[in-house]
C-alpha cells in the first residue's frame, strides 16, 4: 500500500494539545474528588484538590486564549469551518462509524493537508472548544471570585446555578474525553493516530483516496 507522510502536527501544537490533556485530566479528577468528597474515602485531599483545580483552571484559560487567538488569526482556523453540505458529510461520517468501519470500508474523509478533521470531529471539537470549555472556564472563574456572581436568579441561588452549569459542562467534557481517547484507535491502524500525535507526522494512504473516488463513482452510476 502506497503511503506518504505529511507533517501535520507541529511541535507547538502537540505541546499545546498534550498540556491541555494533562490539565483537563487534572481538572476532571480533582473536580470529581471535590464534588463527591467523602471523609472516609477521599480520592484527593479536599484542600489539595481545590488548589490543583484552581491552578489547572487558570493554566487552561491561558492555554485556551492562546489557541483561540491562533484559530482566529492563522490558517489553522480553516479546519474548524463547517462548510456547505456539512449535514450530508456528517451523515456519511456517522454511517461510516456505525457500519462502514466494520465492513472495512475506507475512511470517507481521510486526513490530508486541507482537511485535518472529519465532519464528526469538526462538530464535536467546535462544541467542546467553543461552547462547553468556555462555559466551564467562565463559571470556574466566577466561582474563584464568587462575589461577582448574581446572588439570586429567579429565586434560585446564583452560586448554585453557576456551580451546576460548571459541573454539567465539566461532566460533558469528561464524556468527550472518553470518546476522544477511544477514537485514538480508529485510525488506519490501532496505533497510527497515537503515533501521529507523538511524532507530528501523519501517514496518508494513497489507496484510501483512490477507494473513495471509486466508491463515489459507483454510487453515481447506480
Amino acid at each position: 500500500m502506497a503511503t506518504k507522510k505529511i507533517y501535520l502536527y507541529p511541535l507547538w501544537l502537540r505541546i499545546w494539545h498534550h498540556m491541555n490533556a494533562i490539565l483537563m485530566l487534572s481538572l476532571i479528577l480533582t473536580g470529581i474528588s471535590m464534588q463527591y468528597s467523602n471523609p472516609d474515602y477521599p480520592l484527593i485531599r479536599f484542600d489539595i484538590a481545590v488548589s490543583i483545580h484552581n491552578i489547572s483552571g487558570v493554566l487552561l484559560t491561558l492555554s485556551y486564549i492562546y489557541f483561540f487567538v491562533i484559530i482566529l488569526f492563522t490558517s489553522i482556523g480553516r479546519y474548524y469551518v463547517m462548510g456547505q453540505g456539512f449535514f450530508k458529510s456528517f451523515l456519511i461520517q456517522a454511517r461510516y462509524y456505525i457500519l462502514g468501519i466494520f465492513r472495512g470500508e475506507p475512511h470517507p474523509f481521510p486526513v490530508n493537508e486541507q482537511r485535518k478533521f472529519n465532519p464528526i470531529q469538526q462538530i464535536s471539537y467546535n462544541i467542546v472548544q467553543h461552547a462547553i470549555t468556555p462555559i466551564t472556564l467562565i463559571t470556574g472563574w466566577a466561582m474563584l471570585y464568587p462575589e461577582t456572581i448574581v446572588l439570586n436568579v429567579f429565586g434560585y441561588s446564583g452560586i448554585m446555578l453557576t456551580s451546576l452549569l460548571h459541573v454539567i459542562a465539566g461532566f460533558s467534557i469528561s464524556v468527550f474525553l472518553l470518546i476522544h481517547l477511544y477514537f485514538i484507535t480508529v485510525g488506519h491502524t490501532v496505533a497510527s493516530n497515537l503515533k501521529s500525535m507523538i511524532t507530528g507526522y501523519h501517514e496518508i494512504h494513497v489507496d484510501d483516496e483512490e477507494d473513495i473516488k471509486t466508491n463515489s463513482d459507483k454510487k453515481t452510476k447506480h
Partner: peptide, 25 residues
Amino acid sequence: NEAYVIGANRNYYLNVASIVIFIMV
C-alpha cells in the same frame, strides 16, 4: 436557600444521570 457548599450540595438526579450516561458511553 442562601449558599452553596461544594460536596454537600450534590444533586441525586444529576448523580444518577451522570453515572447512567458514563456507563452507556
